[in-house]
Design a protein around this nucleic acid. Structure first.
Length: 966
RNA sequence: GCCGUGGUGGCGGAAUUGGUAUACGCGUACGCCUCAGAAGCGUAUCCUGCAAGGGUUGAGGGUUCGAGUCCCUCCCACGGCACCA
């Protein structure tokens, strides 16, 4: 250890004892003399051991908390434990301990560990979600949601984790796997509790806009909510044999309702597809002439997981024989299929298939040989003002080798194209095209393969004629029967303007840049359905109009309705596990659900439970093994009444914990209305990226629901959201026991001290960016060295007044550290502290007041060392009254910065000649252009490059740059 | 595939938002100190060149007196969504 080192264990103990004695971190929420600032970090799960990630989360937000207090804010910086959850239960199963004992022991241990960080969290406001005092209110809030029909029990297809033996919310399924244990999830049809987050989809989306969150976080939420606008259209189901005889049931005629974002393409709908789960299949089963095949298909798909279904993009399906659907636009009968590429859980579980303009429908149509009707003509090129109409032909000519014929214009006339020409009035397009091909290339032995059903409308400006055109282009595909050429047919005047070349379609695709020709090439060599916009065709009275324009008219014409659909599903909150908040519901003998009345809350989690997985019976939580719970229900509600055995998803607990911090001990209300009014929304919320579409979305939903019930004062819970990066092992890999690269922070703290670890982590990189930072032991050591150097400076203090340069350095550093801390750019704040330290080190002796200021702005970062230096050197200062015996450095205010000190008297400024830096001048930042120029002309390097000339133009930005143009 | 974010030395990363690119730190090299090592201290460290000089922010083009920063095309990495009609 260094000569001028310090005993970190000693000073940490003393400093922490002092802070506790002074009780400086208990915030008085009712104090309105200061600005309130609610700084929140995601409360930990009591897993039992504090890891580097916890340090990264808590210790660094603590830097900001301390800074804010010095800035005169009333800071709420609370902590608690997200204490319900699976690990406790798994530990219980494994070691035979009670989940409660395990959890409480872990919390006790973690509290002690967190204290070693030197965080300034306010323990008096601690919440513990598994305590009855807390979950009483989780239950109460659940009851409020239920009363307002936002919680609902229903039958639904749900995700089941076969390892954890519980259902999961959609958000907890990652790539078809359980977010917790990684097992492949199964689909089950079960009766479960849901919270209706879908009703808030639109507001979750719109309220996101003004929030100052990082774009990627907002975007992930938007994608998860998945808004799409379209229409619901109805396709009448008819009997296939008797002409258009509608099939009807008791409710009237039967129709398939589809959701589509492209109602404009309805004239191209050539078949309809139902998801295998679609209820109509059951209804119509008696009518099918191939019911066995339909049933078989449904069973096969039911056995597949959602993952398996989407892994294999090869389309499968079965036609529903005996029935047809009527396209409401064309009034034609079209077949109905059942296929698993249509999802039962999205939209209406049924789609109209338009193979010409949808990739999936196209793939299916290819496989089942279904008709493809083009209803959208692409519009290509640059939009022109009042273009003149023109009929055109573009032809793809292919030879026996599969190469395509291209015209390579001389460079000055443009790049490579297919053969094109002007269509002749009253002549078959294929005839005109064949003649053009022969005239331009000499090839005469042609065979027409295909004429495209659609046309392309290409807008362009012909500079040669100074005119805008819209070319209505007919697309043709020819094959060359032989290489025979007819030289006489070549047009004289066209000769020499271009060369003709056969190239592979790949080369052509790379070199053809004209949109029209590009389309034709792709159309005949690698056909893909056209999903863009354009003009309608084959669409009755809508022909020729823009598809976007007619959207609403078509919907009205076919009797459909405009709707918006969301991808997000309701939040499934039932869990078949023990260690969670009991759902406060009981069932009467008829099986109807009733809320447990408020006077019985908290509705306690029973103790006499067998935790063995599955002990509660199929699909039941272990609560079903409790005799006490059954007896309790019968005693309170009567014979034949039964309990709800499931517990709540722990994300429910964490959706409102930040409200509870404001009044954590209140036994009469979930929080305090006055405090909520004063402290919400949370000013800044720091957390991990993994919660973007889970906790963050749930908490926002909860807040909105409670806002609508007038229980909270704001519709958004969190104003700023900061997502931190990840600290990796020294090998750059994610820390894990199996890789043996786990850093135990306790050991590092013991060796180098808490402040070293805090500052090391802060110095890694910007905190609010998603980086992966490897833990580097040399870096930790270096940070300790830096703190040693600061301590060493205390041996060289003098009572002199700091000189001007020192004062300016202090002002600059103080300002920059404040700015960077505010933005959570803790890494550059520390580099600023280093620069200042380097400057003070270079002085013969360090003025005490300067040293005090360094120690003061260091305090949020290295709270123990700063406290130690503050006391041990008995510092006094002219600009703050300090009684070091009774106060802490953490009660000081942030040093005031004199604006005038921020701009130095002289600066060194670069001099550029024609944009290149050639020298520098030192002058006042307010120097006039004449002064600057005079100074620059005196610089030898500048003279050298000017070669005696005078600059033709001078660009001078005071304090920044002087640029001389010759 | 779509959307988002980013790409700067051997490494983590700076750059006041269009104005001296590579701050700060790590690593490395050499030197001092030492019987010796560790620690500590000092010097150097983007590339090329003996030097003068020239070049450099993923690649290419553009706007500008001036571009890491703005615009276009492309490549790569990370993250989110993904048969969502």
């Amino acid at each position: 250890m260094a000569k001028n080192s310090f005993d970190h264990q000693e000073i940490e103990k003393k400093a922490q004892a002092k802070w506790e004695a002074l009780n400086i971190y208990e915030s008085d929420l009712t104090d309105t003399t200061k600005d309130p600032f609610y700084l929140l970090f995601e409360f930990p799960y009591p897993s039992g051991d504090l890891h580097v990630g916890h340090w990264y989360a808590f210790a660094l937000t603590d830097i900001y908390a301390r800074f804010l207090r010095m800035k005169g804010k009333n800071v709420l910086f609370p902590i608690g434990f997200d204490a319900f959850g699976l690990p406790a239960e798994n530990a219980a199963i494994k070691n035979g301990v009670n989940p409660r004992d395990w959890t409480y022991a872990n919390m006790e241990r973690m509290r002690a560990q967190i204290r070693t960080m030197g965080t300034s969290v306010d323990w008096n406001k601690e919440v513990v979600t598994c305590s009855p005092e807390y979950y009483k209110w989780t239950q109460w809030l659940f009851a409020k949601l239920y009363e307002h029909k936002l919680a609902e029990r229903r039958n639904a297809s749900v995700k089941w984790c076969p390892h954890d033996l519980t259902v999961l919310a959609n958000e907890q399924v990652i790539d078809g796997h359980c977010e917790r244990c990684g097992s492949v999830v199964e689909e089950k049809f079960l009766t479960q509790w849901f919270l209706k987050i879908t009703e808030y989809a639109e507001r979750l989306l719109t309220d996101l806009e003004p929030l100052p969150w990082r774009e990627d976080i907002k975007d992930a939420q938007r994608a998860w909510i998945g808004k799409s606008e379209g229409a619901k259209l109805r396709f009448q189901v008819v009997n296939a044999d008797t002409a258009m005889a509608p099939i009807s049931s008791a409710e009237g005629s039967t129709a398939i309702e589809v959701f589509t974002t492209r109602p404009d393409t309805i004239f191209g709908a050539t078949y309809v597809v139902l998801a295998p789960e679609h209820a109509l299949i059951d209804t119509l089963m008696p009518v099918f002439t191939n019911a066995d095949a339909v049933n078989a298909y449904r069973e096969t798909t039911a056995r597949k997981t959602e993952r398996e279904r989407s892994e294999n993009k090869e389309k499968t399906g079965v036609r529903l024989e005996g029935v047809m659907a009527v396209n409401p636009a064309t009034l034609k009968e079209i077949p109905i299929y059942v296929a698993d590429y249509v999802l039962g859980s999205y939209g209406t579980g049924a789609v109209m298939a338009v193979p010409a303009h949808d990739e999936r429908d196209f793939a299916f149509a290819q496989k089942f040989d279904l008709p493809i009707v083009h209803v959208i003509d692409p519009v290509t090129g640059e939009k022109q003002e009042n273009p003149t109409d023109k009929a055109k032909i573009v032809a793809l000519v292919e030879n026996a080798k599969g190469e395509v014929l291209t015209i390579h214009w001389k460079p000055e006339l443009g790049g490579r194209l297919l053969v094109g020409g002007t269509a002749e009035e009253g002549e078959e397009a294929s005839v005109t095209a064949a003649r053009e091909i022969t005239e331009e290339t000499g090839y005469a032995d042609l065979e027409l393969v295909e004429q495209a059903d659609e046309q392309v409308h290409h807008e362009y400006f012909a500079f040669s004629k100074n005119k805008a055109w819209i070319a209505h282009s007919t697309l043709l595909h020819f094959k060359l029967k032989s290489e025979k050429q007819n030289e006489q047919a070549l047009e004289e005047d066209e000769k020499g303007k271009f060369t003709v070349e056969w190239v592979t379609p790949e080369v052509a695709a790379r070199e053809i840049h004209d949109e029209l020709h590009e389309y034709v090439l792709q159309r005949f060599t690698n056909y893909q359905p056209y999903t863009g916009n354009g003009l309608l065709r084959n669409s009755g009275s809508f022909d020729g109009r823009s598809n976007q324009e007619v959207m609403n008219e078509i919907v009205a014409a076919v009797g459909g309705e405009i709707t918006t659909n969301y991808r997000i599903r309701d939040w499934l909150v039932s869990r078949q596990r023990y260690w969670g908040c009991p759902i406060p519901v009981v069932y009467d003998p008829e099986g109807n659900a009733h809320l447990v009345p408020t006077e019985h809350l908290p509705w306690l989690l029973p103790e006499d439970v067998d935790f063995t997985p599955g002990a509660g019976g199929a699909g039941n939580s272990p609560l079903a093994t409790s005799k006490e719970l059954k007896e309790r229900v019968e005693r309170l509600f009567g014979e034949g009444w039964t309990p709800e055995y499931d517990t709540l998803d722990t994300f429910v607990d964490s959706s409102w914990y930040f409200l509870r911090y404001l009044d954590s001990k209140d036994d009469h209300d979930f929080s305090d209305p006055a405090m909520m009014k004063q402290w919400l929304p949370v000013n800044r919320y720091a957390g991990g990226a993994e919660h973007t579409t889970m906790h963050l979305l749930y908490a926002r939903f909860f807040q909105k629901a409670l806002f609508d019930l007038a229980l909270v004062p704001t519709a958004e819970p969190f104003f700023e959201r900061y997502n931190r990066g990840l600290v990796m092992g020294p090998d750059g890999q994610k820390m894990s026991k199996s890789k043996g690269n786990v850093i135990n922070p306790d050991e590092v703290v013991e060796k180098y001290g808490a402040d070293t670890v805090r500052m090391y982590l802060a110095f890694l990189g910007p905190y609010n960016e998603p980086g992966n930072y490897p833990w580097k032991p040399e870096g930790v050591f270096a940070m300790r060295k830096f703190l040693d150097r600061i301590v060493a400076l205390s041996q060289r203090l003098s009572d002199e007044e700091p000189n001007d340069a020192t004062l300016r350095a202090l002002a600059k550093a103080t300002e920059k550290v404040a700015l960077d801390t505010e933005r959570f750019k803790l890494n550059t704040a520390i580099s600023t502290l280093m620069v200042l330290t380097n400057e003070l080190e270079a002085l013969a002796s360090v003025p005490k007041s300067a040293y005090l200021q360094l120690v003061t702005i260091l305090a949020p970062y290295a709270p123990h060392v700063a406290e130690y230096l503050f006391e041990s050197t008995q510092l006094t200062s002219t600009h703050t009254e300090i009684d070091s015996a009774g106060t802490s450095i953490h009660q000081q205010l942030w040093p005031e910065v004199d604006e005038a000190m921020l701009t130095s008297e002289t600066i060194t400024m670069g001099v550029q000649i024609a944009g290149k830096r050639r020298g520098e001048v030192t002058l006042s930042p307010e120097a006039s252009e004449e002064e600057a120029l005079a100074a620059a002309l005196g610089v030898p390097e500048v003279q050298k490059y000017l070669e005696g000339r005078l600059p033709a133009r001078v660009i001078y930005v005071p304090g920044r740059i002087l640029n001389l143009i010759l």
